[in-house]
Amino acid sequence: MTLRVCLFGNSHLAALRQAWTDGRERWPGLDLTMIGAHKGLLLQTEITGGVLRPATDAARDAFARFGGLAEVDLRSFDAIGIVGCQVAAARAAFLHKEARWVGLPSVAACPNLATREPRLISRRAYVAMLKATLSETLGGQFATHLRAGTDRPICLLSQPRTHESILSGKRVEMRALLNSIEIGDGAALSDLFDTTARGLFEAIGVDYLPQPAETVSHHLLTARAYTEGAERLTAAGNAPQPKTDILHANAAYGALALDGLAARLAA
């Protein structure tokens, strides 16, 4: 039986689209429709009677160019997917920049927390913070939007973690993420991110798919094999990877993500 699946996504949809274009025969049980929209355009939509329609000219343009559709009849699909859309492990690391809690290796190693800059907070307060952050992402908002408009199963596929190339330390904006890894908190943060995201989306009736385990490096990063040659969806279409890109994954990653989706939908 072939499942009709509609995948929505932002720039990270390109990895899955590349994989699908390169070898869709790998997923005989899937029939995919992909609709990409950059930035917050996915939220510029309305759902009435199970049909999702762009509500602005910019969204209409994106739907036409990246999906070839004027509207999406959600009822015609067996399942809906949301790809990336800012549901990223890096958010866990950025919140960790000023917060520590009991159970983290870095806290166990610190004799006097009160003299340090990061604040001691409870793990539950951190989780609440992370939940609030994830719910405000494009993915969080779009999942809620979709859930209110359709009874079809919805899966949200995590955004790929940041490239492991940042280990070189040249990207100052990634210091918080690197620091989380260097002080030994990466594993805990990775686990909390996936656990929190799963709980958050389950609570609104959306299935969460974490990043494929084999693509993860240093707990919070994506291994080089899954980032080299990545394309990304831009306003102008699929764009080749610039040297400075540290966010997008490649077709090999996309293939594994689709494997995960297929397995989840078959379960």
Binding site: L95, E98, A99, P118, R119, I121, S122, A125, M129, A132
Partner: peptide, 16 residues
């Protein structure tokens, strides 16, 4: 003495 960490919204901060 203990400002909330960046990223904690005002409502959540007050609740804690």
């Amino acid at each position: 003495a203990e400002p909330p960490p960046r990223g904690m919204g005002p409502d959540l901060a007050a609740r804690h």
